[in-house]
């Protein structure tokens, strides 16, 4: 676990207001891979500006759940509403949702044949139809924000893992998403690079981004999460504010998991 420097107090998540609606709403979501029941009756409402950390053992369905939110995976039962748009097979809606939802992956998934700058401008140019010059400026703005503007003309293979993941975050931000999904963004990193990526995520949280993070970085969870979710075997077992979640877990499975993760 990395030790993050204490940062400015995070604003609490905005209360749900009836008019604005939730950022993400999953109701009775079920999914199968063949016979394998991977998500079971998932109910989850994420308010705007809320930061949620999801943890749980490997294979518990964490990735599958967040990948359903931007339709990298399809759910078979229940409903998923993102930013007021219900996910169906309607390709238009899927496109619309993907434009509002950014995602960062464990293995960065930068495009190896494009420079860092081109990685960032690809979607603004082709999806938002932004002129190249404007897209370049936007990209440089976000590269400065993740503190690597000097790498703009290099290729992903020339950067360290931590730098690549920050580029991946900047690339997602260039689409000005309302929601960011993170799937174990620091799991593939050498320990000394975890901190720089988490700091980037903290600063994003401080700006009020709605975030869903699958991570086992419990320091990060304590610092920025409004709620922590524990998943096991395709179910949400427990969900609570970080303080209560860590000090007083309600379920045996959560306790077991936390004792393994925290190494007591």
């Amino acid at each position: 676990m990395s030790n993050l420097a204490p940062s400015a107090a995070l604003a609490p998540a905005l209360p749900v207001s009836a008019s604005s609606g939730a950022a993400i709403e999953l109701v009775g979501v079920n999914k199968w891979y063949g016979d394998f029941h991977v998500l079971r009756d998932i109910d989850l409402t994420v308010n705007r500006g809320e930061r949620i950390v999801i943890c749980g053992p490997s294979g518990s369905g964490k990735s599958t759940m967040i990948r359903c939110i931007n339709r990298l995976e399809e759910h078979q039962q229940g409903s998923i509403v993102v930013d007021g748009i219900e996910l169906t097979n309607d390709l238009k809606r899927i496109d619309e949702i993907r434009r509002e939802v950014g995602m960062c992956f464990q293995h960065f998934n930068l495009f190896p044949h494009l420079t860092i700058l081109e990685n960032l401008t690809l979607a603004p140019i082709w999806v938002r139809k932004m002129p190249k010059k404007e897209a370049d400026e936007l990209a440089m703005h976000f590269l400065a924000k993740v503190k690597i503007p000097e790498q703009a003309h290099k290729y992903p293979g020339q950067l360290s893992g931590g730098q690549q993941q920050r580029v991946a975050i900047a690339r997602a931000l260039c689409m000005k998403p309302k929601i960011m999904l993170f799937d174990e963004p620091t799991s593939a990193l050498d320990p000394e690079m975890v901190k720089e990526v988490l700091e980037t995520m903290v600063s994003l949280a401080e700006e009020g981004m709605t975030m869903l993070c699958v991570t086992h970085e419990m320091g990060f969870a304590r610092q920025v999460a409004n709620r922590v979710i524990f998943m096991d075997a395709g179910q949400i077992i427990e969900m609570n504010e970080p303080e209560a979640f860590f000090s007083n877990p309600q379920h045996e499975r959560t306790r077991l998991f936390l004792s393994q993760i925290l190494g007591h």
Binding site: L72, H107, N109, W126
Partner: peptide, 23 residues
């Protein structure tokens, strides 16, 4: 090509044909 490349392109909102030819 790793599947993650197509997923990253899709998550950025690129259409399948754009993801194919550009990424």
């Amino acid at each position: 090509t790793p599947a993650g490349q197509f997923e990253a392109a899709s998550s950025l909102g690129l259409k399948p044909a754009q993801a194919f030819f550009l990424v």
